[in-house]
Structure formats: C-alpha cells, structure tokens
C-alpha cells in the first residue's frame, strides 16, 4: 500500500503544478480528460460495481447541465447552489427509472434499452422546451462575469482545477464505496443476484443506491460541462454518442476498476485530439475521418487488452487495488 500512496501523491503533485508548463490549449485538453475521468467514474459505479448497464448516461449529464444553467440564467442562482437542485432532479429521475425497471424486473439488455429510451425522451423534450432555448441551444452569457468563481465563471485554467478536484473527489468516493459494505453488496449483486439474496442482500436496494449515486455524480458533471462550455444543445448533450463517449474511458481503462476510468480518459481524449490534428495535417477533410481512426484505435486497444488497460498494467506494476 505504501508504494501506491507514494505514486498517488506524486501524481497529485504533478497534476497540481502541471498548468505552469502548459499553454491554454493543452490545459483545455486536460479539462476534457478530467471531466471524462469524472463521468467515467460515475458510469462505472453502475456498470462496473453494480453490473447495471446504462447506455443513456447522457440523460443525467444533460439534465444536470440544463437545470443548473436555467437556474443561473433565469433566476441568477449560483451554480454552487443550483447543483443541489440539479442533483435532486437527477436522483429523482434515476429513482423513477430504477423503480420502474426493478418493479417489472427489467434486467440486462432491456434495462440498457430503457436507459436509452429515457435519454431520447429528454433529448426530444428539451428540443421543444422554449424556456431553455429549444433546439437552438441554451447559452450562458460570458460578458462581465469572468472571474466570478462562485458562479463557476472562468477560463481553462480555472476549470482545470475545478475538473481536477472533481475527478479526484470522484476517485476518492469510489475508493471509499468500493471498500464499504455497500460496495461489496454491489459486487455480489453484479456477480450473481440470486446468490446475493441468499446471503441476505436486498438486491433492489443495492441496485437503487448504485443508480442514485451514479446519477448524482453525473448531475455534477453536467453542471461543470455547461459552465465550462457556456452553452448546451439538447441534440448533442442527450445524444446516444454522448452516452457512448461517457462509457469509453472506463471500458478502455477497465470496467469495475478504480483507476480504469482515469487511465482511459488520459488515453482517449489526447488520442482524439491527436487524430484531429493528424487528419488536418494530412489534409483529409472527409467528415467522419476522425471517427474512423478513433474506431480503429479502439479496436486495437480492446484487442490488446480485452479486460481494460488498467488490469494488465496493474499486474506489470505489481500493485493491488481495493483489497484490504
């Protein structure tokens, strides 16, 4: 454990000092990395820990974004307060979806389909909601508010530290959950729900708590997202491709691991950026060229490390994870 703590401390120190050595663009890439690591961690709580496949996690990201942005724009409510409302609403929606599926025993693939359906409903709904700009998008004004940290107004450097703190907090939360009784109950339910019941675990309650934790975390991701970009479009934020983006980092890094989402984000986001530059440099302007290369890169990674990069890397480094 000592060695792991040392490595963690070193990583934290490097990340805290890193912006000194980076330009604005590089800093903004790392913001994306941290936000991806954060959202990956949230998704991983449901899929990696409790075995619930959500293919519609963009729902919570988008709801968190819209709720906090609307409260800020229409009522001047600071997102630091608005985030509580965003979390409450996301948790409410998550519990409704959870109750619906657990009540009617919708499991596995069918549960995943249900999560897609709800994200799609939100996408279409917000497309028509004039209060938050409808299909034209919802915008936060940038003028005159720069530097108001209590309103989450700031540039890449500010959001570097905001997103770093979020990713670190999500990691710490997941470490604590993974080692808690609830965390072990999630693993048991993921491995075999029937056997979990036989050792006294209330499976529905365990699943519901995973859904709630994951939705609450994702809501905060949405708040950061919208205040960083200063805009939100329902067609993008609730899109299926967004849900897939959320899943990619933990899948590539290692589902159910604590470092997987972080490692996955550090690989995927820079890879995506590099591919943009590469396709531009090569003069390939075909739409989707980036997606083709990205897909190829994913296939290679999955082929080389089918259960994620972190599990195989961990073995080589000789460090354990989550075992007391």
């Amino acid at each position: 454990m000592r060695r792991e703590h040392f490595l963690l401390g070193l990583l934290a120190a490097v990340l805290l000092a890193l912006p000194l050595a980076l330009d604005r663009y590089q800093t903004s890439v790392l913001v994306l990395v941290f936000l991806a690591a954060y959202m990956g961690q949230a998704w991983n709580v449901m899929m990696g820990f409790a075995g619930l496949l959500s293919l519609g996690h963009a729902l919570y990201l988008g709801l968190g974004a819209y709720v906090s942005a609307a409260l800020f724009v229409h009522f001047g409510l600071s997102p630091l307060l608005g985030l509580f409302v965003a979390v409450l609403i996301c948790v409410g929606v998550a519990m409704a979806i959870g109750a619906l599926s657990f009540q009617f025993r919708i499991e596995g693939v069918y549960f995943a389909l249900l999560t897609i359906a709800f994200a799609e409903v939100a996408r279409i709904g917000f497309d028509h909601l004039k209060w938050t700009g409808g299909a034209g998008g919802f915008f936060l004004s940038v003028a005159g508010s720069q530097g108001q940290w209590w309103n989450l107004r700031g540039g890449p450097l500010f959001f570097y530290y905001v997103s770093l703190a979020m990713a670190a907090a999500a990691f710490a939360l997941c470490v604590a959950l993974r080692r808690s009784k609830l965390g072990y109950q999630w693993l048991a339910v993921r491995e075999d729900a029937e056997a979990a019941r036989a050792v006294g675990i209330d499976v529905t309650r365990a699943r519901m708590s995973a859904v709630v934790v994951s939705a609450a975390m994702s809501a905060l991701g949405g708040v950061a997202h919208v205040f960083y970009y200063n805009n939100v479009f329902s067609a993008q934020i609730f899109d299926m491709s967004r849900s897939i983006d959320i899943m990619l980092a933990p899948i590539i890094g290692g589902i159910g691991t604590l470092f997987g989402p972080i490692l996955g984000a550090f690989i995927l986001i820079p890879l995506g950026e590099a591919l943009i530059h590469a396709t531009q440099a090569l003069g390939i302007n075909a739409p989707g060229a980036k997606a083709v290369f990205f897909g190829l890169a994913l296939m290679i990674i999955i082929f080389l490390a089918p259960s994620g990069i972190w599990p195989s890397l961990r073995k080589r480094l000789g460090i354990g994870e989550g075992k007391p």
């Binding site: 109950q185 693993l187 048991a188 491995e191 029937e194 979990a196 036989a198 050792v199 675990i201 075992k323």
Partner: peptide, 19 residues
C-alpha cells in the same frame, strides 16, 4: 453452486459475514 465468480474466495465469504 452459485459463487460470486469474479471475486476472491475471501471476498465471497466476507460478503456473507457482512450480514
């Protein structure tokens, strides 16, 4: 038999003890 296949033997039994 229905063990929790991906978990260690120790974890399997500890989850029982957590009741």
């Amino acid at each position: 038999v229905r063990p929790f296949p991906g978990l260690t033997v120790h974890e399997n039994v500890a989850i029982g003890a957590m009741l």
